[in-house]
């Protein structure tokens, strides 16, 4: 590997060091940690296992008893290793995840674009893996989905499906990533590979069965879903208003992605289709929400779109960086 590539990766290392200071600055402080991810992990740690009674009785809307348990169980694994519950140093998971995803980005981009451009790409994507919400499941899902989908794109379907399965054990949104991957395979004319996604389904199934057996349900599927969807479809202005005021996180990044999509979507149709289908699921979920749509969109949209931004940014950059290099080189002498 060239010295220039090492030097560029050094920027990512510095950024990850800064991120480590942030993620471990204090006991986890996010509201969703206190009422969902951390709460369940702490309850399980004190109970000595999954506390089904707690999950069955958890009525508070933000506790989401139906969410898959991988992240709380990872926090518990950390507690086991450390010999007690610790809500500050579990923050170390987050830079570790970001480091793994950044190194994966470099490795996979290296084959397509060479050392230096792969390092540039990894440095650009690194902050997208360094989730600003330590203590939550976003960073985990972003990394699992990104790695899984890129492996599948490159015809490593079985290991990719394993990562998608881990994503499905992380958040309900991970389940829709499996469907998104299947749709993307279809669009990429690789329909016969869809069946090879079976490891993702195998990993996702146990929790779906267990939560059904224990009568644990989520808010989105409670009551009459069809009636809610019908009502929201009948009043589209409400939905549009909700999105008009929704934070999208990093506007300049989105401008770059949307502009880049016109140039890269054809070549990277697998990644663009997967991300597009996933976003469509997110918008669809708002039509089924039992909560106030404006409230729901305002407090979740920025986090949801963060699940696909590294994928889309990768798809654009991996096409444009080599082209820029080629065009910027002086023309060979006649």
């Amino acid at each position: 590997m060239s010295r220039r590539a090492w030097a560029i990766l050094g920027v990512a290392a510095l950024e990850l060091l800064g991120y480590t200071l942030f993620a471990t600055a204090a006991p986890m402080w996010e509201f969703d940690f206190l009422t969902n991810w951390g709460l369940k992990a702490k309850v399980f740690a004190l109970h000595g296992g999954v506390d089904w009674q707690f999950l069955q009785g958890a009525w508070y809307r933000n506790t989401h008893p139906d969410y898959p348990p991988l992240v709380p169980l990872m926090f518990d694994a950390f507690a086991l290793v450390r010999g007690g519950w610790d809500d500050r140093w579990i923050g170390l998971f987050y830079p570790a995840i970001a480091l793994a995803a950044t190194l994966f980005t470099f490795r996979i981009a290296r084959r397509e674009a060479g050392d230096v451009r792969a390092a540039i790409l990894a440095v650009i994507l690194c902050p997208l893996f360094a989730s600003p919400w330590p203590g939550l499941a976003e960073a985990w899902l972003i990394a699992f989905a990104f790695i899984g989908l890129l492996l599948i794109r490159d015809d490593h379907v079985l290991p990719g499906a394993l990562f998608l399965g881990l994503g499905a054990m992380t958040k309900n949104e991970g389940l829709t990533f499996i469907v998104a991957a299947a749709c993307a395979l279809l669009v990429a004319r690789r329909a016969k590979d869809i069946v090879r996604l079976w490891p993702a389904v195998v990993l996702a199934l146990p929790w779906l069965i267990l939560r059904a057996v224990h009568h644990i349900y989520g808010d989105l599927t409670s009551g009459s879903v069809i009636a809610r969807v019908g009502e929201h479809l009948a009043h589209p202005a409400l939905m549009l208003d909700a999105f008009r005021g929704a934070p999208i996180g990093k506007p300049l990044l989105w401008i770059g992605i949307i502009a880049g999509a016109f140039l890269a979507a054809r070549a990277q149709r697998f990644l663009f289709t997967a991300a597009g289908v996933q976003l469509a699921f997110y918008v669809g979920a708002y039509f089924a929400t039992p909560h106030d749509v404006e409230w729901h969109v305002r407090w979740s949209w920025e986090r949801l779109v963060s699940h696909v931004t590294p994928l889309l940014a990768y798809a654009v950059l991996i096409e444009l960086l080599p082209l820029i290099r080629r065009e910027a080189l002086p023309a060979p002498p006649p």
Binding site: I124, L252, L253, I255, G256, A259, A313, V316, L317, L320
Partner: peptide
């Protein structure tokens, strides 16, 4: 486009 993504 690359600059917008990198800065963003």
């Amino acid at each position: 486009i690359v600059a917008a993504i990198a800065i963003g």
